[in-house]
């Protein structure tokens, strides 16, 4: 296992010097590497990066997001995906290529205030993100509890290969749907939901610490299953 060094950093702070490949949230001056965000810096053979602890959601193609319909026109819905960019769900991505504007009333499908699970199908620096709801589990979310977390902490909430999701789901009996944009929808029994929300808040508060899975397991009263997945 290659050695990775870690350090808490703030913007402008020196992480390390030497010869490293930049992975993310780092700038180089001379042979020195500086952080551009508040977070956990990691440097080793793979390169140098900062895992940020706060920041906006910047869409990526293929991301699962949970968005709120905030407006619609004859051609598309406008979707708030908790990002710096407003997303669009074109009507033809819902009704098919033969969609004719004016024939269908878009609100019959998704109304303002509806939550949808969607996938980002296109996005770059020059245009707003485009969404699609084609696929299993996508489309309107009709029940559940909505919880918002910092989008930068989503990877921790998911865990390695989904380990954290599984831990929370098995400990609470709830189902979690986690948007990469920091919106989480929980469904299950009310007491399970209360426990799951507490677990999510713990992950959010302690995202910068190690042994998070064990802490969540302890909180939910789950015995460790062979201690397989370290999550540091």
């Amino acid at each position: 296992m290659p050695e990775v060094k870690r350090k808490y950093v703030i913007p402008g702070e020196l992480i390390t010097e030497g010869n490293y490949r930049i992975i993310a949230n780092v700038i180089k001056r001379g042979n020195k590497f500086y952080s551009t965000r508040i977070g956990l810096a990691e440097y080793g053979q793979e390169g140098v990066k900062v895992i940020p602890l706060t920041g906006p959601y910047v869409p990526k193609v293929d991301d699962l997001v949970i968005g709120k319909i905030v407006d619609y026109s004859a051609f598309a819905w406008e979707v708030d995906i908790n990002s710096c960019f407003m997303a669009y769900l074109p009507a033809r991505n819902v009704y098919g290529k033969n969609f004719t504007p004016g024939q269908e009333s878009l609100v019959k499908r998704f109304n303002i205030g509806d939550l949808i699970a969607a996938v980002v199908t296109a996005f770059d620096r020059t245009r707003d993100p485009i969404l699609s709801v084609a696929g299993p589990g996508l489309g309107k979310i009709s029940k559940g509890e909505v919880v918002k977390i910092s989008p930068t902490k989503v990877p921790r909430l998911i865990g390695k290969k989904g380990s954290m999701i599984r831990t929370i789901e098995s400990g609470t009996g709830c189902k979690l749907m986690i948007g990469q944009n920091g919106i989480v929808v929980l469904s299950g029994k009310p007491e399970g939901i209360i426990k799951a929300v507490k677990a999510i808040r713990l992950v959010e508060e302690e995202a910068h610490l190690a042994d998070l899975t064990q802490k969540v397991q302890a909180m939910l009263g789950i015995k460790e299953e062979g201690g397989k997945e370290g999550d540091g």
Binding site: K68, V70, D80, N111, I112, G113, D114, L115, I141, S142, K143, G144, V146
Partner: peptide, 8 residues
């Protein structure tokens, strides 16, 4: 602000 339908 628009409140989510399911929360409403």
């Amino acid at each position: 602000f628009i409140m989510e339908h399911l929360r409403k």
